[in-house]
Amino acid sequence: MSEDGAALPRKAEPPPPALPWEGRAQPADKFLLGAIMASGLYLLALMPLTPTLLAHPWILVLLKGSASGMVTLGGMVRIGEASLPLVILVSIPGMMMFDWLYWWAGRRWGKRAIDVFIGNHPKAEKRAQRLERLTKRFGWAAIIIAYFQPVPNVLIYAAAGWTRMRLWVFLLLDLIGSGLWIGLCIGLGYAMGQDAVDIAKAISRYGLYLGLGLIVVVFVRQYYVASKRT
């Protein structure tokens, strides 16, 4: 109340957090959202360990489909310390580990999944519409070249589910696209040969310091972003 007895206007309440589902969350919604969040935390936890794990490229590639790990393995193939078919087989699971989750998100939540992944950007609606048109027209090609274009892969995978692409078609196209990226990384390492292996060993030797430095950079950046918002 003001001094003259008039009611003061109520402050506008902040909008509720955007959720990808409508109405009450079903068990599948909770599982899917939890799995997507867990996948992000999983990859984030592996970031500072990547330099150290370069000494064990097989593990690194299997855990996260690491490009640097595949380059190292390509060098090992060149000097006869690894088998090319085995390197390819080990690389595929890490590359495709979480892709189906984003397809499922688009399939289950539709455009709301795209909105969540894009965020509250002023041009979010236009970007979502453009992504829908591109996926409907060139969906198969977009998935194949996902690793070679600037649009985040998760948006392309979610759009594939949103536009009702069948799971087996998506997985086949994803396998082809992942194979192209794997071939590029292994081919680069093969061309470098022993140099690729030596570089990986040098990075791994100082991996602990690089990992700690990466953690510091991440925290400093988060602090800077948070301070800008206040």
Rank of each mutant, 00 (worst) to 15 (best):
L155E: 01
L175N: 00
A158L: 01
V151F: 05
L172C: 08
A142C: 15
L171E: 06
M165S: 07
W140S: 15
V151C: 04
V154Q: 12
G161C: 05
Q149C: 10
F170C: 00
V151E: 02
G139D: 05
W162R: 15
Q149A: 11
R133V: 14
A159S: 15
A142G: 10
T163C: 12
K136W: 08
G161V: 01
I144S: 01
A141H: 07
G161W: 01
A159C: 13
W162H: 15
L155C: 05
L171V: 07
W162M: 15
W162Y: 15
T163P: 02
F170I: 00
Y147N: 11
R137Y: 09
W140M: 14
A159N: 08
W140Q: 14
R164P: 08
W140G: 10
L171F: 10
L155H: 04
T163I: 14
R164L: 11
Y147C: 06
I144D: 01
R166I: 04
W168Y: 15
I144W: 05
I145R: 00
V154G: 06
L175M: 06
W168K: 11
V154Y: 08
F148S: 00
L175W: 02
D174L: 05
G161M: 05
Y157Q: 08
Y147Q: 13
A160N: 07
W168P: 07
R164F: 09
L175R: 03
F138E: 11
V151N: 02
E132G: 02
G161Q: 07
R166A: 11
M165C: 10
E132D: 11
L175P: 00
R164T: 10
Y157H: 13
L167M: 14
Y147H: 15
D174H: 04
R166H: 13
F170K: 00
A160T: 13
L134A: 14
W168V: 09
F138I: 06
G139R: 06
A142K: 05
A141L: 13
R137T: 11
F138P: 03
V169Y: 12
V151L: 10
R137V: 06
L131C: 10
R137L: 10
T135K: 03
I156C: 01
I144M: 08
A146H: 03
W162V: 08
I156G: 05
